[in-house]
Write a protein that binds this DNA or RNA. Sequence first.
RNA 1: AUAUAAGC
Length: 245
Amino acid sequence: IYLSAKLLIMYAKCGKMSDARQLFDEMPERNVGSWNAILSGHVKNGKIEEAWNIFDKMAERDVVSWTTMIGGYAKTGKIKDARQLFDKMPERNVVSWNAMITGYVQNGMVEDARRLFDEAPERDVVTWTAMVKGYAQKGRIQDARKFFDSMPEKNVVSWTVMVTALAQNGRLEEARVLFDEMPDRNVVSWTAMITGYVQKGRVDDARELFDKMPERDVVTWNAMITGYAQNGKVKEAQRLFDKMT
RNA sequence: AUAUAAGC
């Protein structure tokens, strides 16, 4: 059963929902977990109406099923539907609250997110990070920073969100200070800082970080190469592109 | 096995 569920997820990741459906229909035993797997597959492929039909048919739903649907509606901009489900669900955990809060953030509704944040019976690092991101994308950097500084615990994602917030709002020096203070950095953190420099035309600072970082992925290479290109350094872009292969 | 946050 668990193996089949893994297969379902694999199919879903490749967008092969019809294969997933067939496998699911042939499964001898379907528990709420396998139903959730197929539900999640449809949501990930943007098939929200299909997902609803499945959800509606499910004999048994758990907190994961409900939360999957909330995330699906939120991502497709149907925030009101998401909220209706959220209000209707029989029990919630911190992930359900987070899904609803990040749903508001994704739809630019940071005040609604804040209201829910205040109401939430429990908050974790995801809850807090979502609020930092919510204020940051509204340009409300000092509110974002206030939340960031109040966080009971931070991880590499929270740090990276805050660094990105500062960098995207042109506050590169502050971003760099924070970047240097990070207890851990990963490839996303490095790339966020590089992108910040590139957007301000500071390709040499970007390149310094690029050379210093322990590992690069396709997003990093792309940021650096297009950074050169957009700043008129076509030769450098070409040279780096060749180095990549 | 399945749900929520970061660089595009």
